[in-house]
Simulated assay, not measured.
Amino acid sequence: MSRLPRPCLLAVAAAAAALHADAWAVNGAQPGGIGIKNASMGGASIALPLDATAAANNPAGLAFVPSSATFGLQLFRGHSSAEYVLPGNNLDNRQTQPVPEGGINRQLDGGIAVGLSVSGAGAGSDYGQPALPVAGAGEAKTSLRVAEFVPALAYAPRPDLAVGLGLTLAWQQFEADGVIVPAPVPGGLMPLPGHGRQSATGIGVRAGLLWKPAENWTLGATARSRVRMSSLDGYERDLLAYSDGHLDVPAQYGVGVAWQATPRLTLAADWLRILWGEIEAMRDPNGFAWRNQPVLRLGAAWSLDDRWTLRAGISRNDRQIDSSRAVQNLLVPSIHDRAYSVGLSWRSGERSEINLGYELNPRTTLEGTGASAGTSLTSKVQMFLLGYHHNF
């Protein structure tokens, strides 16, 4: 490994770090964008491959990215609070978590490109106290971490068209404590036992298409299958009994467009649909009950000169949590439905580039209705983005 070029070592380091870092996100349990440059443009990426993380956004994008390596870090800072079930029962949660990502790709002969992208996702909270004054209840907290490794291959039969195929190799870690459920006695409550931190693995497939119908336009489409994860030991007996302990990674599909409006201005848009509602764990009538989630991502990049580029974007989604499920989603308060991002890229040398960005998910409140009346969840999330890109 010591003989690998330095950018390769950075990509390997990103892969290793993803196995050990918490990963918190804003589109349900997914990040707003993968790749620092794309994330700074609202996540728009399906038709706009910008670096070696392209395989995670659209495998076909590898055909349009030069041989290179990328390392990025998205630093999550979140503050959520809840007024939970009882008047005056206020809970507070603050999280700061690093989310590493990276990738490496190589252009081969015959219009073939290969690459590996690494990204993280997840959700969680730690309120530091029991959710309700129930005997035996532990501190209310949960942690879901998912690292995705995406080896992929792209083929461009002609300069304006590429197709791509890849695998999703997922590693998952899950822990929950302080979960309180109705007791067999009418009107009673009881805590579920904790099962500690458990791991699972799974595999899925993904595919993509990129087409340039005109010199300044690019159209893209991508889809990935559900990743069927192995069972999380212990949780199949209670919290995840409905899905036999499985917490799968959802399927998703989307389309995108990118327009080179002027030599210095690029505009991009994605429409993505994440199929949370198709996961068995989300079909539990007493569980989280997340719905399928459409996401709209818009971004712009303006090159000031040959070295400096400004980026900005906005992302909107239909919240995957219904207001009647606020009580069940205390431990995963992923309630944001919009995000704003800005970024800056500096070409520090002929082959190297440093990327900075910031994403704000403004303070948002979900007021419970129906069975969740009297419960409200509030959250604000900031993401600080830092990345390095190197062309071979």
Rank of each mutant, 00 (worst) to 15 (best):
Q107L: 01
G120M: 12
G120I: 07
Q107Y: 02
Q95I: 14
N355F: 02
G370Y: 05
W211N: 02
A131P: 03
L296F: 11
I203Q: 13
Y253I: 01
R106Q: 13
Y242F: 14
E280F: 08
L377P: 06
G78H: 06
W211H: 01
S80P: 01
F288P: 03
F174Y: 14
P98V: 04
N329K: 09
P186D: 01
A162R: 04
R325H: 05
T365F: 05
S125P: 06
R94T: 13
A15S: 09
S231H: 14
Y235H: 05
Q382W: 10
A69E: 01
A69V: 02
M190I: 11
S348Y: 14
G128I: 01
A162L: 06
V255D: 00
R158T: 14
S379L: 12
S348L: 14
T262G: 08
S230A: 12
V381H: 10
P157A: 05
N391A: 14
A121W: 04
A135W: 00
D22H: 15
S117H: 05
L165W: 11
A140S: 05
A29Y: 13
D270I: 07
I180Q: 11
R77S: 15
P191V: 02
A251M: 10
V227D: 09
S303G: 05
T309V: 11
L108K: 07
E139M: 05
P157G: 12
A147C: 08
H246N: 12
P100D: 03
P59V: 00
A23S: 14
G387S: 08
A147L: 08
L153S: 12
T378V: 06
T375S: 07
M1E: 09
A261K: 03
A371Q: 12
N317Y: 05
W308K: 06
S125Y: 02
V257W: 13
A373K: 11
R224H: 11
A15P: 03
S81V: 07
